[in-house]
Design a protein around this nucleic acid. Structure first.
Lengths: 212, 212
DNA sequence: AGGTTATTGGCAGTCACTGACAATAAAGTG
DNA sequence: CACTTTATTGTCAGTGACTGCCAATAACCT
């Protein structure tokens, strides 16, 4: 793979992954707002591109479909849970850990994003394409769950038992999150709703990790 | 809703649901064969329509997208499991019931369909659109699971706990089925592979229904 | 046969998305 | 600063999935 001594880089450097993520996230916010305002079908790719200040061609380079524009926002929210899970101390009970660590980041943009994410999840009820995307993202996260579980059990992440537990965690998280999205539909995200959500999750997941 | 005495029906009667399902299933078989032979991207809607002996316009009336043409076949296989679950006697253990009742229908067309279904599931690895559709179908089946579970527990099907158990069953079934699809990739469906699959499923699901 | 309704087929159109290429931006080098 | 090199963007024309519209036909009735 390596071909001798590195020649010093020449020409324009490629954009960093960091930059990529930020730009995709920016487009994602515009797309979600437009989808929420006027529906997915009524929102064109050109419209999203214009809102994000980019040409339509570039939009299609960054996203394979207009529905997939919601992906960065949703993924970001899934990633938050993944981080909590990674931070799960080996000796602790998952229930206790979630109660302690599963709190929303309190900065303003996160709060806005959280509302946006739940809005999208609510939209998936009537927008099949969004639901499909959402389920694919959730399944993608199962791999991370499997790695964490495998690390604890000392097994491999592709053992059937580990994959089943990971899929189960994902399923529980999905139901709990859908429930949260419905619960906050009218009054917005309240600390009380979050607390209920956290408790439901902690309770259900404790059953999953029981025989670990 | 009812507007007086039924006038005797006039004109051509609408197609029965039975007929609809059979025709969709027929198209589905052709679509899956073409997808498997040449890939999804290389298969056009017109091609599927021609193979099924119908005009392209009609194909789009029966299916909202070319990928969704695989739906009837997949749904049929999910329905088989749903029937087994419905037949679950109230006093029996789920493990025992599955060992006794979860057998493939032995007729020829079912066997061919079963191979086709597993082929599609294997294809979902590299075809994101198919994976998305597959996950949506699986989630749709959760409602049935919830009804069965609710009937046993005496609760309502939209209780959070019931929905979580249903989603968990669905997740376990998904992982087990993906595993089966991989296992039979080379040698085709063997009785031994089916036995293993059934045992894995029965074992995992017994944990799910433990506290019922 | 003739009336009535459900379904189909053909045709034109829209729009998501792609390939190819010119234009521009962001570096390094003299 | 001029010049080279590479990464990214924009423009434009094209493809193909999918829809609306309407005429044609099929299936049932009297």
């Amino acid at each position: 793979m390596d071909s001798g001594p590195m020649a010093p880089r020449r020409g324009r450097p490629p954009v960093s992954d960091r930059q990529r993520q930020r730009r995709r996230l920016d487009i994602s916010r515009h797309a979600v707002r437009l989808f929420a305002e006027q529906g997915v079908a009524a929102t064109s790719g050109g419209q999203i591109a214009r809102a994000a200040g980019v040409s339509e061609r570039t939009l299609w380079r960054w996203f394979p479909s207009k529905e997939s524009c919601v992906e960065p926002l949703l993924t970001q929210s899934v990633a938050a849970f993944q981080e909590v899970l990674h931070a799960w101390p080996p000796e602790a009970d998952l229930t206790e850990h979630l109660r302690a660590a599963y709190r929303p980041a309190p900065d303003a943009s996160s709060a806005g994003d959280a509302e946006a994410v739940l809005t999208v999840i609510r939209m998936t009820r009537d927008e099949p394409a969004l639901r499909a995307l959402y389920l694919v993202l959730r399944e993608r996260a199962e791999e991370t769950f499997a790695e964490v579980l495998a690390g604890r059990a000392g097994g491999s992440a592709d053992l059937l038992d580990v994959r089943m537990r990971a899929a189960t965690m994902s399923a529980v998280l999905k139901v709990a999150t859908d429930d949260l999205a419905r619960a906050v539909a009218e009054k917005g995200i309240t600390p009380e709703a979050l607390r209920r959500h956290r408790e439901q999750l902690a309770d259900a997941l404790s059953h999953v990790t029981r025989g670990l």
